[in-house]
Design a protein around this nucleic acid. Structure first.
Length: 355
DNA sequence: AAAACGGGGTC
DNA sequence: GACCCAGTTTT
């Protein structure tokens, strides 16, 4: 890569950013705790979606000690609806690492941050550059898109080779005197001008040098990874209606929604009907004889990036003593359900039932 | 090196 | 319906 071209890009980028920086109030802080929290919340998450969560977290947990002292369930509950729930568990674990092992003092180096749960190359670079002014280039979706187009990089960003290429290029470009400005400028450019679709090339400072623009192939960059088709799953959630109470359980690890709460789950190989559900209820040993009354909802289709969930909610009116609840089930009042962290698909169904 | 992990906005 | 978002961890 031509060194003069890199220098020119850096210069034009910073000049552009001086006049066009996005004014986001929660960005000006140099407080490592806030930056860490913000960056974790924003992993694979849009600003507008993450912003209210950031403010709620900061209000409830003003510093790392408060976060470390909290129960995991409360952290998950605050995270409810944001997705990628391992982020909440890792955030909580890292808070405890910082308090228990580091005396509540934040690391100063990239390598130390990398050693904390839930912090990878992007987040570590973001924290040390924004909080401490260290010259580590961030590489996120925005940066990859900008670099791929500006310099005609054909590597797939998600591949190992691509990661290396984009990181090396970003690191070569960064202004060691102003790393925070540079990083912010790259992400602002990707978010406001060099957008995934219909980028505003006519108002871009790099339009005369941009590889993709010059080749009229802007939307061909970055090269996309071949999409994998989602796994299809069929869930039947059993809502035992025992007067004012029902049963909930907690999901294990190594699957979607790990550590969140849910209703007793029957995973089926197709959308179930009542006969199939009755059969499985007995096979699981949850009841001894067919339950009545029973009502099945229409299947709710919940489409996620890697899974399509077809969720049927099964309402079973039953007496408490007819249910043989496995250990681990919790009997809770309907009115108390909002205290637990549920997947969105469950939360929305409950909401609809109440309205 | 690939796959898994959520939810929502946009075109 | 496809793509993608201020990515990280697990397999």
């Amino acid at each position: 890569m031509n060194a003069d071209k890199q220098k020119l890009f850096r210069k034009k980028l910073l000049a552009w950013h001086l006049k066009n920086r996005r004014k986001l109030p929660w960005r000006f802080s140099r407080n490592p705790y806030r930056i860490w929290l913000r960056e974790v919340i924003l992993q694979q998450t849009r600003l507008e979606q993450g912003a209210p969560y950031f403010h709620r977290f900061l209000k409830r947990f003003p510093d790392v000690r408060q976060l470390a002292q909290a129960e995991l369930d409360e952290v998950l509950h605050l995270w409810q609806g944001l997705g990628y729930y391992s982020r909440a568990r890792n955030l909580h674990a890292a808070a405890r690492q910082i308090v228990d092992q580091l005396g509540g003092r934040f690391p100063k180096t990239y390598q130390e941050w990398m050693g904390l749960k839930g912090i990878g190359r992007y987040t570590a670079a973001a924290i040390v550059s924004f909080a401490f002014g260290q010259p580590y280039a961030v590489v996120d979706g925005n940066v990859c898109r900008v670099l791929a187009r500006a310099f005609g990089i054909r590597d797939v960003p998600q591949s190992a080779k691509g990661k290396k290429t984009f990181e090396q290029l970003a690191q070569a470009l960064i202004d060691p005197q102003r790393p925070a400005d540079f990083n912010q400028a790259m992400m602002d450019l990707g978010a406001t001008v060099c957008t995934p679709r219909k980028p505003l090339c006519s108002s871009c400072f790099w339009r005369h040098e941009c590889y993709a623009h010059q080749h009229q192939a802007v939307e061909q960059f970055p090269v996309r990874k071949e999409a994998v088709s989602p796994r299809v799953r069929h869930f039947a959630y059993v809502l035992f209606e025992m007067n004012a109470h029902t049963f909930i359980t907690r999901r294990g690890q190594n699957d979607i929604y790990s550590h969140l709460y849910e209703f007793p789950l029957l995973e089926m190989n197709r959308v179930p009907d009542e006969a199939l559900v009755q059969q499985r209820l007995i096979a699981e040993g949850w009841i001894k004889a067919p339950a009545s009354p029973m009502r099945l909802s229409q299947p709710v289709v919940h489409k996620l990036t890697h899974q399509w969930l077809y969720v049927t909610f099964v309402h079973v009116g039953i007496c408490r003593h007819q249910v043989h609840a496995p250990s681990g089930w919790r009997r809770v009042a309907w009115a108390e359900l909002n205290q637990f962290a549920f997947p969105q698909v469950i939360r929305k169904y409950l909401q609809k039932q109440l309205s």
